[in-house]
Design a protein around this nucleic acid. Structure first.
Lengths: 231, 231, 231, 231
DNA sequence: TATGAATGAGCGTTCATTCAT
DNA sequence: CATGAATGAACGCTCATTCAT
């Protein structure tokens, strides 16, 4: 502003010494991507509230202003983050081998995939927790949400129907319930591992503890669909 | 300058109208309690980061300063909150009728209790989520944590052992896994109900949807322990 | 990382949808004009400080960068705005019928013109207020300023001299004072209408209230020049 | 916040070296007053938009935070400023000697008072301009506004009625119009003095120019009420 | 002639906390 | 026990402007 007297001393900004990346400006794609990835990391670690714009921009080696340039505001960024983590999950899930002729194997593979995915992607868990704390106000803006889910559920539906046709699964189990069961068992272990560790007096981070849990989940789900495991 | 008489300056406090409570000051216990209850409500709604001292003190119809008086700082308050919600949970759980002669009935009752408790106490769920976001740093300060857990787990252990002795339950199921399974299934439904609702395109708030879920959980757990339900 | 193909990043611009205008670029003059007009509107509504570059460029359906291209910076744009509103005023004033043989009629016409002009051009009033808040620093850069004024004042001088020669006006009234009187009475009504409305408890927007004011101004000015109105 | 890592270097704040005023904190009254007075100065100089919280707090040798403590937010501060400048005006006006037996003298005194008040209190003028730029949204919150005005107008009403009863003033002049006329002539000279100076090529700051204007206003108003001045 | 990308300073506001009684 | 006053850091966001093509 023209007449405004600038009095504040120039604060030493850490983000000031951003590498110029050669002599030219960073490409738009690069900037947007690095901001988005940084946002996923920061929101995962600090939550939506604690993940400040400044933390994100400096983690992205960019500037606060760029977040507004590409995402409008913090909410817009969080919506983009939500979309991205769902997209990644779906992309990974699509690679799981589902075979109508082998419902038991398929079910086992999808269980393993989900339990491990939550375990290997703690950002997915904490970001969804943030979104739930905010009562799903951002996911409501994602038109792709239901699209993503339908594929996730239909995987279970296909497996269940194959197994039921083959007579190895019970008839009275819903795909949605089964999906939620697997998700819950994988999610909870990851989401609540700190309070559980304190509560149970046992470190849940240990890899053999986790692998034992995965076996238990497998057993529980197969029991629930009525499949008799051989010993 | 024609400045003249000035009335007492009125600082703008959003909390405002603290009741004078007759002629004597509010008792210490009363203040502490109302702050603690307000903190539970506010942390549950906004998380640890979003639940500001000011929101809490005004919700308690008290003053910021009182929080420091009784709890030292925000962290101390959150530790007290954690302790209180665990205490309440344990208190409620202690009332569940556990009978060594009726392991199946006892298991059913504890399942119902847990699933409904999470459902009826969303603050328990969101506050634990906050604590896990902060990597369990507050629960570590609670010496009572393991004490609480041991009773929770031992309930399952007792039930399991009774059932195993009677030959109605499998031998290879751990009490800890069973506890975690029930907790996960009850917790996840409540914790993730907003993202799940968007994802599944189905409101999980509906009471019949929840009741159906509780039935499913019952079936899943009984199947997992190897109990054959009559149709 | 499963990051995959990314579509072109879409920076969030509130201005947005600039029409492509067929196959060729918008002509330079057109862009400059629409920016200038938008600036008048925006500065009129928000003041110099509140009228941001972004508000103006989006109101002009153009881009921030164009403002710098055509006007150098915000100050240059404001100088151009000042010039334009003075030019418009002068252009309109030049159409008022001034007749040396009819000083009373001419005076009445110029009074009506000025009072109505301020009323019908609130942007003129608010922009001049902004310029005065900034102590006339922009108008100083306008060489045409005094040129404009000389015509405005000379209109009054001519009328006064004619009337004085005819013996219907007093000899001791200065053209400059008369000009300022008319301007003040027209300007103040428009400039301060919001505080006046609150202060007087009477809406000054009403057209009959304004018309009564114009009549009063007419009477006041004619009285001041010593003209005896017939009843 | 507990877990938030503070990375930003501590900026050197000019307001940091605030004099401690002895060993004890400043009294509330003192702080509130000095903020209010600083706000009047700063808003007068830079307008509502340009008058930043930081400019005001440092001019008051206080802290940003204190403005929120005492006035809630910037708007609340501006409302208090409006109230204060109106109060001062009314307080000063109440001291003008109004005598029913001497309507002409009373009118002259009130004209002189008003014209000089605007001249001597440029902050009154610029702050009202700011309020009008914002369409009177703050004054609407002042319940005392109409109360202030009624006294201002009633002064004119009393004078007019006395003069009319004595037969020295015309019957057809409204108190409101007369008030607005005097206000307009005094206000405009002050409010628009920068653009007028550039426009007329004549410094309106000169004290003899102002005094001549005050004489002209006197003549114009007396002519308008139909009073025949002796030469 | 026109544009997308980037930039650093500043904005109003809220934060958790301490001082002084 | 309780309180009003004060504090510095950080927050999300907007500002006018420049870079590079």
């Amino acid at each position: 502003m023209a007449q405004a007297i600038k009095t504040k001393p120039t604060p030493i900004k850490k983000s000031a010494n951003v590498k110029p990346l050669g002599t030219r400006a960073r490409s738009a794609q690069l900037t947007r991507d690095s901001v988005l990835k940084a946002a996923i990391r920061v929101f995962a670690k600090y939550g939506l509230n604690g993940g400040s714009i400044e933390k994100i921009s400096s983690a992205a080696k960019s500037h606060d202003r760029m977040i507004y340039y590409y995402f409008g505001n913090k909410e817009g960024l969080f919506v983009a983050v939500l979309e991205e983590i769902y997209r990644r999950f779906n992309e990974a899930e699509a690679k799981v081998n589902i075979d109508a002729k082998d419902p038991v194997g398929s079910l086992k593979r999808i269980i393993t995939f989900i339990v491990y995915y939550y375990h290997d992607h703690p950002e997915f868990v904490t970001i969804l927790n943030s979104e739930n704390l905010h009562r799903g106000k951002h996911i409501a803006k994602l038109q792709l949400a239901t699209e993503y889910s339908s594929t996730a559920i239909s995987v279970f539906r296909n497996i269940l129907e194959s197994g039921q046709a083959q007579g190895v699964f019970r008839q009275d189990v819903l795909a949605r319930d089964l999906y939620m069961m697997v998700a819950a068992l994988g999610y909870f272990y990851q989401s609540n591992r700190y309070t559980l560790s304190a509560f149970l007096g046992e470190k849940l981070d240990a890899s053999d503890t986790f692998e034992a849990w995965e076996k238990f989940v497998m057993h529980a789900v197969l029991s629930t669909v009525g499949y008799k495991e051989e010993v």
